[in-house]
């Protein structure tokens, strides 16, 4: 392999990796605060891209039905619970999610400025993760990581069934945000890719600032570090979880808008994107944002180098590499605390 080829593959790899970076950040964020391995994160990315494409084509995006369905279910859960704050529940689960839906009904079909299209896309994706949290995870917030993980995997399959109905089987590819491109040192960089990298860097920075310097961010971290301790100072883990999922939704929406124009996404493409991002997040330790970024880039590089060697086996290698990574991690943290018996397990 020549140095030139390696450089090309590396560039391709970074471009691949940029697809996973935001997702890896979102997965780490959700895991840290709620201990949920949010497998459906990738699905949200695909939905964002499909939504943006539909708006650009002047169609009403199918996502509105998903939002309405989830909001209805969440409201039902809220009413069935012993929660006494009806007004707040109605506002959070009944009214707020419906605002972007109403906007979509009003605006879809008209020619919209790109920024409005993007804003509307973000608005429609935003409620999804918090609603999924309310429906699937909050009722069992104290369950083991394992149970939460199984719920997350099942949830992916359930919502992708709905996604097929509302989005249809066709793929979509929204327009590029920028067609500019740059040449640096003989290598050709498309503007969209630079945008993705810049967004990833910005998101990493913002997350670091949020968690490092704001009280809300610290409260979220505190929930992750010690749930009981957090409750004892008055932090509601439920609200913290909802916030984390809201941030995850925002990251997924941004990611979908950015990567959609680069790769055609179908209603079910998100799963593998999410899982690869997840592999990256685990490589980075599942607890660190910069680690997640590096892990995601590593996955991208791995993919592009394996694809060169044998394109059919690139998925096999990406997933198989997780096994040695996990073993290595586990060996490094051998000296952990004594385990407790897991009655709850499964």
């Amino acid at each position: 392999m020549t140095a030139e080829l390696a450089l090309l593959l590396a560039q391709d790899g970074v471009a691949n990796g940029a697809i996973y970076v935001l997702a890896a950040l979102g997965i780490v964020l959700v895991f840290l605060v709620t201990r949920v391995v949010f497998v459906p994160f990738g699905d949200l990315i695909a939905y964002a891209s499909l939504t943006l494409a539909a708006l650009q084509e002047g169609r009403r995006p199918g996502i509105v039905w998903l939002v309405l369905l989830l909001a209805g279910l969440a409201l039902l859960f809220e009413l069935a619970g012993r929660q006494r704050k009806w007004g707040r529940a109605l506002l959070a689960y009944g009214v707020l999610p419906c605002l972007p839906v109403a906007a979509a009904f009003l605006l879809a079909g008209r020619a919209l400025p790109p920024l409005v299209e993007m804003a509307l896309t973000i608005g429609l994706i935003l409620p999804i993760a918090p609603l999924l949290y309310r429906i699937a995870f909050r009722p069992i917030a104290d369950a083991s990581v394992l149970v939460l993980l199984i719920v997350a995997v099942v949830l992916h399959f359930a919502i992708s069934g709905i996604a097929l109905m509302v989005f249809g089987p066709e793929g979509a590819r929204p327009r590029l945000l920028t067609t500019a491109s740059f040449e640096i040192g003989g290598l050709f960089f498309p503007g969209q890719m630079l945008l993705m990298l810049a967004a990833s860097a910005l998101a990493t920075l913002l997350l670091a600032l949020f968690f490092g310097f704001t009280l809300s961010g610290k409260a979220l971290r505190a929930t992750a570090v010690n749930r009981v301790g957090a409750r004892l100072v008055g932090i509601r883990p439920g609200a913290a979880g909802a916030t984390a999922f809201l941030l995850a939704s925002a990251l997924a929406a941004a990611s979908g808008i950015l990567i959609g124009p680069v790769t055609t996404l179908f209603y079910d493409s998100g799963f593998v994107i999410g899982l690869k991002a997840f592999v990256g997040a685990i490589i980075g330790g599942l607890v660190s944002y910069p680690g997640a970024v590096l892990g995601a880039l590593f996955v991208g590089l791995l993919e592009s180098f394996t694809a060169f060697w044998n394109s059919a086996l690139k998925e096999v290698v990406v997933f198989a590499v997780l096994v040695p990574v996990l073993i290595l991690r586990s060996a490094l943290q051998r000296h952990g605390a004594e385990e407790e018996p897991e009655e709850d397990g499964l």
């Binding site: 610290k218 971290r221 505190a222 570090v225 010690n226 009981v228 301790g229 957090a230 004892l232």
Partner: peptide, 11 residues
């Protein structure tokens, strides 16, 4: 103030 302290040890 619980017996196990329940501090945010990483902070």
């Amino acid at each position: 103030v619980p017996e196990r302290r329940e501090l945010f040890t990483e902070m």
